[in-house]
Amino acid sequence: MARRDSRGVPWVLWIPAGAALALVVLPVVGLLVRTDYTRLPELLTSPASLNALRLSLVTAVLSTLACVVLGVPLAVVLARSAGRGVRLLRAVVLLPLVLPPVVGGLALLFLLGRNGFLGYVLDVATGVRIPFTTAAVVVAQTFVAMPFLVVSLEGALRAGGDAYEQVAATLGARPWTVFRRVTLPLLLPALGSGAVLSFARALGEFGATITFAGSLEGVTRTLPLEVYNQAEADVDSAVALALLLVVVAVLVIAVARPRAFDAGGGAR
Rank of each mutant, 00 (worst) to 15 (best):
P147M: 04
P16F: 10
A267T: 05
W14C: 07
D36T: 02
T220P: 07
T134W: 03
P189T: 03
A208P: 09
P224G: 11
L118A: 13
A238Q: 04
V150R: 01
P189G: 00
L112K: 07
L251W: 09
R129C: 01
L186A: 12
R257G: 07
C67E: 10
G30E: 11
G83W: 08
F199R: 06
F143I: 09
L88N: 02
L65K: 02
V61Q: 11
L112H: 06
R7N: 10
A242N: 10
A202D: 00
P100E: 07
A200Y: 03
S49N: 07
L157P: 02
N115D: 15
L184Q: 04
C67Y: 03
V239Y: 11
R221K: 12
P47M: 06
L244T: 10
D123H: 12
R158D: 07
V93R: 09
M1D: 12
A52F: 07
L111S: 15
V28N: 02
R54N: 09
A140R: 05
P131S: 02
F212K: 08
G127L: 06
F212C: 10
R39A: 14
P96V: 04
P27Y: 05
L55S: 06
P189L: 03
D162F: 03
G71T: 08
L216C: 04
L111N: 06
V72H: 11
R87Y: 03
S63N: 00
L171M: 15
A52M: 10
A238P: 09
F110G: 11
M1W: 12
A136G: 01
G30S: 01
A17I: 05
A82C: 06
N51D: 15
A48C: 05
L118W: 12
M146T: 13
L43N: 02
V61F: 15
V139S: 06
E165L: 00
A168K: 00
L118C: 03
P100I: 01
L187I: 01
P41D: 09
L95M: 14
L32W: 13
A260P: 06
V167E: 14
V58F: 15
L112R: 09
V121L: 15
Q166M: 07
L223E: 04
V98Y: 08
A169N: 01
G264W: 10
L23A: 14
S152T: 12
R54I: 01
G265A: 11
A256L: 04
T209S: 12
A125V: 13
D123A: 14
V137F: 09
I253K: 07
V76N: 10
G192S: 14
L109E: 04
L43E: 08
V246F: 13
L191A: 03
G83D: 08
I130A: 05
P16Q: 09
L157V: 00
I253T: 12
G30C: 00
V196M: 13
I253G: 05
G218D: 05
V139L: 12
E226K: 08
D234N: 14
G172R: 05
T211Q: 13
R180N: 08
A202H: 04
A145F: 00
P189Q: 00
T35S: 14
T38G: 13
L57Q: 01
L108F: 05
L188V: 14
N51P: 03
P147N: 00
T35W: 10
V77C: 12
V178H: 02
